[in-house]
Design a protein around this nucleic acid. Structure first.
Length: 495
RNA sequence: GGCGCUAUCGUCUAGGGGUUAGGACGGAAGAUUCUCAAUCUUCAAACCCGGGUUCGAUUCCCGGUAGCGCUACCA
């Protein structure tokens, strides 16, 4: 590749990033956004996204959660180029790293028991001292440590943090961040059971996987100096760190189960279109350059994304705005694209459309989609368009059909449509209704509103005559004739 | 408590030493009259506080306050 005599373009290293969730829960909103930013970054620069499962916490990690995370990523359309790697399958590597660090004097064996540590912490707290590990085993010589280990004594491995000076790094989002080394305790690298802690496994993997940019939640800022020390101890080059502000609930506390849906998959269940969710998430904590509009296609998002646009302050998850994005996406989607998503809603609601003609389905979806807020609407408030088994909204019946005279008129109107030879178009159906209203000396509006409820079960729906045409002559007539029955049904909830 | 980070409408944010401080969501009002969850129009709504620096600070600096994060042999 280097034999060309023409000048080589500036060589920009291809970025390698990773999304490294811990399978102790489903893919939550914050994790999804971290995944999304990594994905956008990788795609923007033509880099590589690695998926790494951080399952070293054997107690809390489950295979089910791994599957849940993958499912969430697939739903969001986030694909990865390498992995998923599982840290539990790389344990030997972590032990080797720890051994290297002990050999080079950057780490040491700690024989303190859990009980001792707890006792000392409690004592420190009682005396108002910081509850930090004081380095009691640090003075044990390497030889003594090794022989006690050889004798079968169990020990953890701790990193020997410099006792003076400071550790800093340049964060792509927050700028320079510096910590005094005295604030950092001699953290554990390897537990006495031989398993790695987070810091060891992360740095070992990030070095080994040649990660160039670590894009993760801002809750890791305080962990970063320890990891920087590890890179240095290992003689490895630092990646670029980019910490992303956290996502908060409406009460400005960290997003959690208390705030409702925390798993990304829950939004699928609520009828959110994945692209809408992605668009919404992308704009939480990131602003595109020269902000123009907020609806961005995948391509635009990828093209515009950069670390520079990430903000430093936490963002509140605004459900109302998500719903707005969803509305916009449903409206913009062609019916063909909506149909499979809507079929899924029908399936979940437990019914099949009675009218299966594809063209009819598509045109009906086009009629309805401008007023949909969720995919669920197609199986709930729009249900009467697709099946004859629907439950009318009692409030709508109360509002527009409580008058007995109106109900009688609607049934008579049904007879008129049945007797009419006119083509069943919007114009003709409207003419017939208005003539009928004039003849009966009543307001067309009252008839129209009543008919809407009879035909759709709802007080809110598209223009009545468009509804009639969508339903077709037969169903329109049948439902009008059954006005009385429908009104009665509204009063007696389904059993 | 210690350490770190952050601070513009209710929310997401733009901006930046002199601006009518801009946009979007949400909210309010009006129009439409065939409903509104549609559409159109209009409106209200913000620079956390106190000191500096400066002719002039919302913007720069310091302090305070508040919020969040970390403070485990969790990740």
């Amino acid at each position: 590749m280097s034999s060309s005599s023409s000048p080589l373009p500036v060589r920009v290293a291809v970025p390698r990033v990773r999304f490294a969730p811990s399978p102790t829960g489903y893919l939550h909103v914050g994790g999804a956004r971290t995944a999304l930013f990594n994905w956008l970054f990788a795609r923007h620069y033509g880099g590589t996204l690695i998926l790494r499962i951080e399952d070293t916490d054997l107690e809390r990690s489950t295979a089910e959660m791994v599957e849940g995370i993958l499912q969430g990523m697939r739903w969001l359309g986030l694909d990865w180029d390498e992995g998923p790697y599982h840290q539990t399958q790389r344990m030997e590597m972590y032990r080797e790293t720890a051994a290297r660090l002990v050999a080079s004097g950057h780490a040491y064996y700690c024989f303190c028991t859990k009980e001792e540590l707890e006792r000392r912490r409690a004592a420190a707290a009682a005396e108002g001292r910081p509850p930090r590990y004081e380095g009691v085993c640090r003075s044990i010589s390497r030889e003594e440590g090794a022989s006690r280990r050889a004798a079968g004594e169990s020990a953890a491995v701790r990193f020997a943090v410099p006792q003076s000076g400071s550790t800093s790094f340049e964060d792509a989002v927050f700028g320079r961040v510096e910590f005094a080394n005295t604030e950092l305790e001699d953290f554990v690298l390897l537990r006495s059971d031989g398993g790695p802690t987070y810091h060891l496994s992360v740095v070992t993997d990030d070095v080994e996987m040649r990660i160039t940019h670590v894009i993760r939640g801002a809750d890791h800022i305080s962990n970063t100096p320890k990891q920087v020390l590890l890179y240095q101890g290992l003689g490895a080059a630092l990646p670029v760190f980019a910490h992303v502000p956290l996502i908060l609930g409406p009460d400005k506390t960290r997003l959690s189960k208390r705030h409702g849906a925390t798993s990304v998959i829950a939004y699928r269940e609520e009828g959110i279109v994945p692209q809408a969710f992605r668009n919404f998430l992308a704009l939480l904590g990131w602003t595109p350059p020269e902000g123009s509009g907020e609806i961005f296609s995948d391509h635009e998002l990828i093209r515009l994304f950069g670390l520079e646009g990430i903000s430093r302050s936490d963002a509140v998850f605004d459900r109302a705005k998500l719903d707005w994005f969803n509305t916009e996406y449903i409206r913009a989607y062609p019916a063909e694209k909506l149909l499979p998503l809507i079929r899924e809603e029908w399936r979940k609601a437990g019914f099949e459309p009675e009218h299966t003609d594809r063209d009819w389905l598509l045109s009906t979806i086009n009629l309805l989609k401008p007023r949909a807020r969720s995919l669920k609407d197609f199986a709930t408030s729009f249900r009467a368009f697709f099946t004859d088994t629907f439950q009318p909204d009692p409030a709508a019946v109360e509002k527009f059909l409580s008058d007995e005279g109106i109900r009688q008129m609607l049934m008579e109107l049904g007879e008129r449509y049945a007797a009419s030879e006119d083509s069943f178009t919007e114009a003709e159906t409207e003419k017939l209704l208005r003539d009928f209203a004039a003849e009966k000396e009543m307001k067309a509006g009252a008839l129209i509103n009543g008919a809407r409820v009879v035909l759709t079960g709802q007080g809110v729906a598209p223009s009545l005559f468009a509804v009639m045409v969508a339903l077709g002559k037969e169903r329109t007539i049948a439902r009008l004739k059954a006005t009385q029955e429908l009104a009665g049904r509204a009063m007696t909830p389904e059993v």
